[in-house]
């Protein structure tokens, strides 16, 4: 499969990021119903269709630009967007191996991996990388293994270790995190880092999801979708940089919502890792503005209904209290009130 990359897009300042029609069509649309509530939406991560659910770890036309934006964010604030507890090194190597093997097998035209014992040769033609290193020896890489490989990967990545019957944040790279702080979350247990999410504990979902994940087996990944809204196609929406991007929320009107309001879809394919027994949580983000959504009238109709009926606690938590009404009004032009099946992506 050949991807027409868009190598010069920006996710900040002048925001030249844009989706091709093909890229819109392949996005994993996250709304299975007209009303949205958290659910145990975990399913086996098996290859489906030709879109975002085909590869083990999906890449798309934004790959090169997104890797550049990650590098900019990492350089701007060292220690803020990549953190790892010292004992996570084995899980880091696990992750490096998983990403390299997955990319090389799904996208052989862009990535190759040759192994000669612990001597590994990795090429990434999209970023002009050709490195030979010793697997297990961090001194043979320019960064720690997790940072090295995720600088070449789309999406955020969090490594969780299993201890005392729960999962703890042991390491993460997060240059596109939705209003949380990586440094703050590091070391937190499952119930702690989910603390701020409304309605999750009350429904028993938090306990059920943890039980399910603790049974996750190597080689049997599962996936789920999550979503939020952002103003502008901005990846760095961390808690730390809140003052830089929160003012944008006041700029949304019913007239410009189609261009300014972006649906952030998070595809999370979770894998158990073989040596460390850690679990990796990738958060692969897709950004589609409401105009993109509206190129599929069934999507626009459904999203209108989802946003209109969404529980206020979730609106507040996801941070679009100030412009929910504007987005709903813009989308209302696509909802004739008639019911019809929404075509799902993939």
């Amino acid at each position: 499969m050949t991807i027409q990359f868009r190598p010069d897009e920006t996710y900040r300042d002048d925001y030249t990021y844009a989706n091709s029609p093909e890229c819109i069509a392949r996005a994993p649309f996250p709304f299975p119903d007209d009303e949205y509530m958290y659910s145990m939406n975990l399913e086996p991560h098996v290859s489906v269709g030709d879109g975002a659910l085909k590869a083990i770890f999906d890449i798309d036309e934004h790959y090169i630009s997104e890797c550049r934006d990650r590098a900019i964010t990492l350089e701007k604030d060292p220690g803020m967007h990549y953190v790892s507890a010292p004992h996570m090194m084995e899980a880091q190597w696990d992750l490096l191996e998983l990403i390299m093997e997955s990319y090389a097998s799904d996208y052989p035209e862009y990535f190759t991996l040759e192994k000669d014992g612990t001597r590994w040769h990795w090429t990434n033609t999209l970023l002009n990388i050709d490195d030979t290193f010793t697997f297990g020896d961090p001194s043979t890489l320019p960064y720690e293994p997790m940072e090295y490989i995720t600088r070449q990967a789309q999406g955020d990545w969090v490594l969780q270790e299993e201890r005392d019957g729960t999962l703890y944040w042991g390491a993460g790279i997060a240059t596109q995190r939705a209003d949380y702080s990586l440094r703050f979350n590091l070391g937190m247990a499952w119930h702690e880092f989910h603390g701020p999410v409304p309605l999750l504990k009350e429904t028993g979902m938090l306990d059920r999801a943890l039980k399910f994940l603790l049974r996750l087996r190597c080689g049997h990944p599962v996936r789920r979708l999550n979503w939020s809204l952002t103003v502008n196609p901005r990846l760095d929406v961390s808690a730390e940089s809140l003052p830089d991007w929160a003012p944008d929320r006041t700029t949304v009107t019913a007239e410009n919502a189609g261009k300014l309001v972006y649906l952030r879809i998070e595809l999370q394919p979770l894998h158990r890792l073989p040596r460390s027994n850690a679990i990796v949580f990738p958060i692969r983000t897709y950004l589609l503005n409401l105009e993109d959504i509206a190129t599929n009238p069934a999507w626009a109709k459904r999203m209108h209904r989802v946003l209109k009926s969404l529980n206020q606690e979730l609106v507040d938590y996801k941070g679009f209290t100030r412009y929910r009404d504007a987005a709903v009004e813009w989308l209302s032009q696509f909802d004739d009130g008639q019911d019809e099946e929404v075509v799902k992506a993939g």
């Binding site: 703050f184 590091l186 070391g187 702690e192 808690a239 809140l242 003012p247 929320r249």
Partner: peptide, 17 residues
């Protein structure tokens, strides 16, 4: 929201918007 590692609650800019 409390972090045991930092032994603290989190605070963010109140008038960021």
């Amino acid at each position: 929201h409390y972090s045991r590692r930092l032994a603290a609650f989190q605070a963010v800019k109140a008038d960021a918007e």
